[in-house]
Structures are given as C-alpha cells and as structure tokens.
C-alpha cells in the first residue's frame, strides 16, 4: 500500500480499516442501490411534477423557518446550559436532549397534546386566534422539536470547549454581556454554530414521524418532501425513488456548501 508523503500520525491498527470500510459501505450502498432503481428517462418529469415541486418548496421553507427558530431559541439555551450553574440544570440538560432519543411519532403525539385543539396550550392559542392544527406552523413546530437538540448539543459542546476565559477578559475590557456574546463568544464557537445549524436544517428536512402525527398531510400546506415520498410509494414507486434521490441530493448540497471554506481543525 502506498501512502502520500507527509503527516504519518501514530498509525491505526490495521484491523480498524475493515469495520470502517463495512460501516462506510453500509451508509453508501443503500444510496447507490436506490440510485440504480431510478427511472432516469422520466426522472425530470417525476421530480418537477406539481406535487413534487410543492413538497420540495414546502420542505425548504419549513426547514429554513424551523432552523431560524432553533437558532433564536437554541443559542440562548446552549449558553444557559454551558455557562450557568443552578440546581436541576443536569436534569434540564437531559430533558432538552429527549427529542434525540424519542421516536419522532412520540414527539408528534406530545406536540398534539400541547398545541393541538384540545392540547395544553391549544385552547389558549385558539382563543388568541391562532390555529396550529393542520397548518404549516405545525410542520415548523414539529421540525423545531426534533431539530433543536442538535443545535443545542453541538453548540453547548463548543461553548464548553471554548471555556469562558475569553469572555472574562472581554468583560474586563468594558464589553457589556451582549457585546461579549456578539463579538467574542459566538465568533469563537463559529464552527460549532455552523455545524449545529447544518445538523438542525438536515434534521428538519428529513423530519417525517412528528410531522405526519402532529401536522397532517396536505399538498402545499403540510405535506413536506418526506411525506410526499411516503405517499407516492403507495401508487408510484418510481416517483418515490426519484424524490428520495432528490432529497439526498438536497441534503448533500446543504452539507457540502456549509462545510466549504470551513477549516478542518476542531473549534477552539
């Protein structure tokens, strides 16, 4: 085996390459297998059908919206979890991570009992003139619910790694807490923030279970691309495969674009 000259590192045990390769295949092969099933002659018309375009547009819009909500809520959450010490914070941290391990359907049921018409907040919202049920808002809520932990977890880790020493110095130079946050804390965890944002967006884009349970499924309103794919499987497997590949391409593009120009080194 030849290797390029340069950093040789300490060397990995040879056996590690076998499970690593199997793992890599395990991820890549199903994507390849799916690509081989695509009806390429009709691909363009399949992915540009009215329902497909509506689903893709809805998916991109709702994922962008839920990622924005994740940032607005998640950055302060990560800051509190990383920087504050008060009784019960460990419990709080565990609770925030629950959607990571919860089956999304369960998340959908939980959201239903919270924001649904008969839910905890549903009646209050209805009185206020806000009807969440079966609306695009419900999709964004479902996506935010499942995607938020990805942002919080990634950012909290980055904040802990960065530590608060720079913040202390900045404050001693006369910077108000908001200035410290804007000019020092967040730039220092920039790579972590980008990773967390990408993960949240990707998770929102792929969200299915909570959406179908909580938001329903109606073209142009709540039927995102994953829901459309699942529905198309019933009658038109070719369309389902074509749309699946489209979703993969979109996900890969999002990850590739945000990774570009980002240094390979770990956050500070």
């Amino acid at each position: 085996m030849t290797a390029p000259a340069g950093d040789a590192g300490a060397g990995l045990p040879r056996w590690a390459f076998v499970p690593a390769a199997v793992g890599g295949l395990f991820v890549v092969l199903p994507l390849v297998a799916m690509a081989t099933r695509v009806d390429w002659s009709g691909y363009w018309s399949l992915v540009t059908s009215a329902s497909a375009r509506a689903a893709l547009a809805l998916s991109l819009q709702t994922s962008a919206a839920s990622t924005a909500v994740c940032l607005v809520l998640g950055i302060p959450m990560a800051l509190v979890l990383a920087r504050c010490r008060f009784p019960g914070i460990d419990l709080l941290r565990s609770l925030v991570m629950v959607p990571l391990v919860l089956p999304p359907v369960v998340g959908g049921v939980a959201l239903l009992y919270t924001f649904g018409r008969r839910g905890l907040l549903g009646e209050t919202l209805e009185v206020a003139g806000l009807q969440v049920a079966f609306s695009t808002t419900a999709v964004v809520l479902a996506q935010t619910f499942v995607a938020l932990p990805f942002l919080v977890m990634t950012l909290e880790g980055a904040l802990r790694t960065a530590g608060s020493r720079y913040d202390v110095v900045a404050a001693s130079l006369g910077a108000r807490p908001t200035t410290v946050l804007r000019r020092v804390t967040l730039p220092l965890v920039g790579p972590g923030l980008v990773s967390g944002t990408v993960l949240s967006f990707a998770r929102a884009l792929g969200e299915f279970g909570a959406t179908i349970t909580f938001a329903g499924s109606l073209e142009g309103v709540t039927r995102t691309l994953p829901l459309e794919i699942y529905l198309q499987r019933e009658t038109d497997p070719d369309a389902a495969v074509a749309l699946s590949l489209l979703l993969v391409v979109v996900a890969v593009l999002v990850i590739a674009v945000t990774r570009q120009g980002r240094p390979a080194r770990s956050p500070l």
Partner: peptide, 20 residues
C-alpha cells in the same frame, strides 16, 4: 457593579488574544 462596568482590566497568565 458588573465586571464590564468596573473599569478594572485583567491581564492573565496567557495572553488570551481573541483569535478571530
């Protein structure tokens, strides 16, 4: 008085220059 409002500057062992 919060740290930023004290006009007390801190120089630590390490320079801690903002890397960005």
């Amino acid at each position: 008085v919060p740290p930023h409002d004290r006009q007390v500057a801190l120089l630590a062992q390490e320079p801690l220059l903002f890397p960005h």
